[in-house]
């Protein structure tokens, strides 16, 4: 037990150290990929929060889009600093999430999945329909990259460190939520909804809470993305992108906070590696999704736990959600 108490913080420190040093030795192109990777880490981990309650949604990238559009509007028209646009985008995405989830909690399982698709698509169609202020089907361009004092975030390196800090803070908060009583309640009401209700847990309220927290952090990811790309486009938040998010989650697993991150990193490596096979990439990803759902429903995480348990010869909890 003592060994474990030390290995975990050491592991975290080592990861942070690697993340801090890595971009210094990389080309600009690689740094851009690391930035997108960190933004996507916030996105996948935030998706996991409602997923632990059993609510797999198809509206998550749209909520990320809410953050991106909020940032686009605030920084373009009101020229707000990046210190304001990121939290405000998160709050707006959280509010939109709360509005969406209020009718959604009446549905469960497959109904939730489809209904969240419908409501997400509704929000996305609003962006397409209203040329003012959302820019219509072609979205918005010319969003400032943001800056702190003299440091211009147009350069990849400073922006990388900014995203790294935001991502670490977000992950820390989500990790604490996962470990807290609230996080345990989320899992409990997935494992046995009737029992959870019987011991006095207000199930719809907790499900709404999980969804709203997820939306809040998706908003942060969206805001960081909008500042980096300098543009938002309704196509960036459509069902295709959502399927890629599902692929990351399914490949990784959802039992712990590490699962989605594992899936994301693995699939990003595959994504970069398959650059020469551009046209065949959806086939590769679609095939991977089918493979994991059919043969490895617990994801890489489950595989990792099983291998570790085989090596150490002990049985610790690494169940699948």
């Amino acid at each position: 037990m003592t060994a474990r108490r030390w290995t975990f913080p050491l592991f975290i420190v080592a990861v942070i150290a690697v993340l801090a040093v890595l971009p210094l030795t990389s080309r600009d192109y690689s740094v851009e990929i690391y930035i997108l990777l960190l933004i996507n880490v916030i996105l996948v981990v935030s998706y996991r929060i409602p997923a632990t309650t059993g609510d797999w949604a198809l509206s998550h990238v749209v909520l990320m889009g809410c953050g991106a559009y909020t940032t686009a509007l605030l920084s373009k028209w009101y020229d707000l600093s990046i210190f304001l646009t990121v939290p405000l985008s998160a709050v707006i995405a959280g509010i939109v999430g709360l509005i969406l989830v209020t009718p959604l909690v009446r549905t469960r399982g497959f109904g939730f999945f489809i209904a969240s698709f419908a409501l997400g698509e509704f929000v996305r169609l609003i962006w397409i329909k209203f040329r003012y202020p959302f820019g219509g089907p072609r979205g918005m361009i010319g969003i400032p990259n943001g800056e702190i004092g003299q440091i211009d975030f147009f350069e990849p390196l400073p922006y990388y460190y900014f995203v790294l800090v935001v991502a670490l803070i977000s992950l820390f908060i989500m990790y604490r939520i996962d470990r807290s009583r609230i996080g345990k309640t989320f899992v409990a009401l997935y494992k046995d909804e009737g029992l959870a209700e019987a011991v006095g847990i207000d199930v719809p309220r907790y499900r709404a809470m999980a969804f709203t927290i997820g939306a809040f952090f998706a908003g942060i990811a969206g805001s960081l993305l909008a500042h980096r790309l300098g543009a938002v486009d309704p196509k960036n938040f459509d069902i295709n992108v959502m399927v890629y998010l599902i692929i990351w989650i399914v490949v990784g697993g959802t039992a712990t906070i590490w699962g989605p991150i594992m899936g994301l990193v693995a699939m990003t490596v595959v994504f970069e590696w398959s650059r020469p096979l551009l046209e065949w990439r959806p086939l590769l990803f679609g095939g991977t999704l089918i493979f994991f759902l059919v043969f490895l429903p617990g994801g890489l995480e489950d595989l990792f736990f099983r291998i570790r348990d085989r090596i150490t010869g002990k049985r610790s909890g690494g169940g699948t959600v």
Partner: peptide, 28 residues
């Protein structure tokens, strides 16, 4: 035979796997 039967216990799994199939068919 290849997708729905192995994932019969979970509606969402079959649905998501056929989303993967949609990608595969589009590319082919």
């Amino acid at each position: 035979r290849l997708i729905f039967r192995p994932t019969r216990s979970n509606v969402l799994a079959g649905f998501m796997a056929t989303a993967g199939l949609a990608f595969v068919l589009q590319v082919l």
